[in-house]
Design a protein around this nucleic acid. Structure first.
Length: 422
RNA sequence: GCGGGCGUAGCUCAGUUGGUUAGAGCGCCAGAUUGUGGCUCUGGAGGUCGUGGGUUCGAUUCCCGUCGCUCGCCCCA
């Protein structure tokens, strides 16, 4: 038997209903915040990510699905959402439109990793990217979107962690301070961190290994090294959040895995599921647009894994309110009732009812059993009696009551019922 | 890339201290008198016991390899 590739998932009907529910919430958030959907290709030219995300990041250097196509072009399945959106922003001249440009997407994301709970090789992200505003109010708006999204779908006990990673103006000083600090402890750091020390000192702060944590504890804090501009921005953001009842904690160790971030970075972490607790992460990336060849444009965004969100909701025993519309099952009781059954089904569908009729040649009993199993609200049965008298028998499956209705008045009858139910 | 656990029906799992026709529950299909569901009862379909090799008179059971799944580390959503 052929099985699905490692780290992928089939989303079966039962599950896809939950996805639709989440997507509905996303579209509603988009409406409230005036976000517009953008859809970019599932694969891009590899260079977009090496230049955009950063060559030294794990995502780029060991987790990308990269291959040569038949024209010898290096192609990569998108390992994150931002780079593609920025590329589209540039390629389609969106920078010439009025600012801000507020975009969102729901997209598959591919990373070659060892799968485990909450981590797949293909997962899906709801992401937001907003271009053109340098205001801390923009940061606050994006965080507020994330906050209400998670709240709306019913996530509990989440914590917003906030930090600023500065900008090219202040980061060199901080980097130097970090290097100076870690230098004497170099031998005590884990193998990985020793490499980080040379290549990307900042990343050491994110190490989860105990021995490193001990050293990190007293490391200089970025917040002490921010330039006036970055510092003012960070303070302003915190004031806005506080004034609007969006709880947060500042985590000076918070470092994100992608190199393009500047100033604000944030994560929503759930305390309910330990290590894989990050449900949503993002930040400001004021230099990415310029780095990819555009004119200098501020931007901020976030990505949120849908599988992980569903997992979290599951862990919190949250049952999603999936509503079912009124459905009608048509039961032809004899062979010669089938044609009329089909016509009735067609008519009702045209009137927007959800209708199903027997196509399995089931016995009468089995038809009712089936109608019950698909949770049909009404069964319309058609047999010899009905054919003779031009009526239909409608059974309410909840009350068990039956009624005879003239064929010409069926639609009216059902519409009246539907109205009552609503 | 590194480490742990597990692979028996569509699903959840039991089982065989190695022995002939491999089990349960759920689900599916059919029946319990005549045109009616949800409960109950009866019957049925469905398994090369992940896969390759070894030990053995005999392996689904023991051993080794392999593949797959799963959980954790790294990293991330």
């Amino acid at each position: 038997m052929i099985t699905k590739p490692k780290g992928t998932q089939d989303i079966l009907p039962n599950e896809s209903e939950k996805w639709q529910y989440i997507e509905e919430k996303i579209r509603n958030i988009a409406r409230q915040f005036n976000l517009h959907e953008i859809r970019t290709p599932t694969f891009e030219v590899t260079e977009l990510f090496t230049r955009g995300v950063g060559e030294t990041t794990d995502i780029v250097h060991k987790e990308m699905y990269t291959f040569l196509d038949k024209g010898e072009r290096s192609i990569t399945l998108k390992p994150e959402g931002t780079a593609g959106v920025v590329r589209a922003f540039l390629e389609n001249g969106l920078f010439n439109q009025t600012m801000p440009q507020k975009l969102y997407y729901i997209s598959p994301i591919f990373r070659y990793e060892r799968p485990q709970s909450g981590r797949l090789r293909e997962h899906h992200q709801f992401g937001v990217e907003v271009f053109g505003s340098a205001s801390p109010f923009m940061d606050a708006e994006v965080i507020s979107m994330a906050y209400s999204y998670l709240k709306e779908v019913g996530v509990q006990a989440m914590q917003l962690q906030l930090n600023s990673v500065g900008c090219p103006k202040c980061r060199p000083a901080f980097n130097a301070a970090l290097k100076a600090y870690f230098e004497p402890y170099k031998q005590e750091l884990c193998e990985n961190c020793q490499i980080r020390f040379e290549k990307n000192t900042l990343r050491i702060l994110d190490c989860k290994i105990e021995s490193c944590k001990n050293v990190i504890k007293n490391a200089p804090k970025i917040t002490d090294y921010l330039c006036t501009e970055c510092s003012a921005h960070f303070t302003a953001l915190q004031q806005i959040l506080s004034a609007n009842d969006i709880p947060y904690i500042v985590n000076p160790q918070l470092v994100r895995g992608l190199d393009y971030y500047t100033k604000t970075v944030f994560e929503f972490v759930s305390t309910a599921i330990g290590a894989k607790g990050t449900v949503l992460g993002g930040g400001r990336y004021d230099n990415l647009v310029a780095n990819l060849g555009g004119k200098s444009t501020c931007a901020i965004g976030f990505g949120s894994g849908i599988e992980r969100l569903l997992l979290l909701l599951e862990a919190q025993n949250r049952v999603l309110p999936i509503q079912k519309n009124i459905s009608i099952y048509i039961a032809p009781l004899e062979e010669d009732a089938k044609m009329l059954s089909f016509q009735v089904a067609k008519l009702l569908r045209e009137k927007d009812f959800a209708v199903e009729m027997d196509v399995m040649n089931r016995s009468i009993k089995a038809q009712f059993k089936y109608a019950n199993s698909i949770k049909a609200n009404y069964v319309v049965s058609i047999g010899h009696d009905e054919l003779q008298s031009n009526t239909l028998t409608i059974k309410n499956m909840q009350t068990g009551k039956e009624e005879q209705v003239e064929q010409t008045k069926l639609v009216q009858y059902l519409q009246a019922i539907a109205k009552e139910d609503a």
